[in-house]
Design a protein around this nucleic acid. Structure first.
Length: 204
DNA sequence: CCGGCGATGGTCT
DNA sequence: GACCATCGCCGGC
């Protein structure tokens, strides 16, 4: 990847409706700069949209709290939280200031510096980053990146896709792991993935 | 290959 | 004190 291709996507990319951003993120590259300067690159192959206070699956539906504070701010920032006491989840904040919503990154296809990823998460095969808790481990993403500005080109950012993507390559369906949500939200087809991509997470 | 279950800690009631 | 936007292990096939 050359230097121009590593430019971070601007805030205007994230400042669109969450479903639009979610689908637009497919095929894009996540770039992670470790504290020692090493650069890890991976392609986004699966995401889920969480669409504001009226979406009962969205954390912000339960109100504004210290944890969800970043969701209520401007788009283009990282929302990282811990789930089940073990796994970090990585989300990108979308749309507009004051409307809490975002996109969960659920699976990545490793592209560059895979050896470093396997040091951070020593497993073989596709278990490296085919799940939301796996990919944060493989990229060394923790709560220290909570609220991080994704448009600055440091530590964590996103680059536009470097491949062609046709509409028929994109699949969509209900989100995973939100049984507690209202039926209308449980059933909403707000999970997007690259059809047939082997790095997509196992449906649970 | 698969299904069930325990781990583990921050967050909110 | 309950709830989790999950994962890995273990046992059964």
């Amino acid at each position: 990847m050359d230097e121009t291709a590593r430019r971070p996507l601007p805030r205007s990319f994230f400042a669109r409706e969450t479903l639009v951003v979610a689908e637009a993120l497919l095929g894009c590259l996540v770039v992670r700069e470790l504290d020692d300067g090493r650069i890890l690159v991976a392609r986004i192959v699966e995401v889920e949209a969480y669409c504001g206070p009226d979406d009962s699956a969205c954390h912000a539906a339960k109100g504004r709290t210290p944890r969800t504070e970043v969701m209520f701010g401007p788009p283009g920032h990282a929302y990282v939280y811990l789930i089940y006491g073990i796994h970090h989840m990585l989300n990108f904040i979308t749309w507009r200031d004051g409307f809490p919503c975002g996109v969960l990154i659920r699976a990545l296809e490793p592209v560059e510096n895979i050896g470093a990823m396997r040091t951070l998460r020593p497993v073989s095969g596709r278990a490296l980053c085919n799940g939301p808790g796996k990919l944060t481990a493989a990229l060394g993403v923790t709560r220290t990146l909570y609220g991080h500005d994704l448009t600055q080109g440091s530590f964590l950012w996103v680059c536009e896709r470097d491949i062609e993507l046709n509409a028929e390559e994109v699949a969509r369906g209900p989100r995973v792991g939100i049984d507690y949500a209202a039926p209308v939200d449980r059933d909403a087809p707000w999970r997007f993935w690259l059809r047939d991509n082997p790095w997509v997470s196992k449906a649970r």
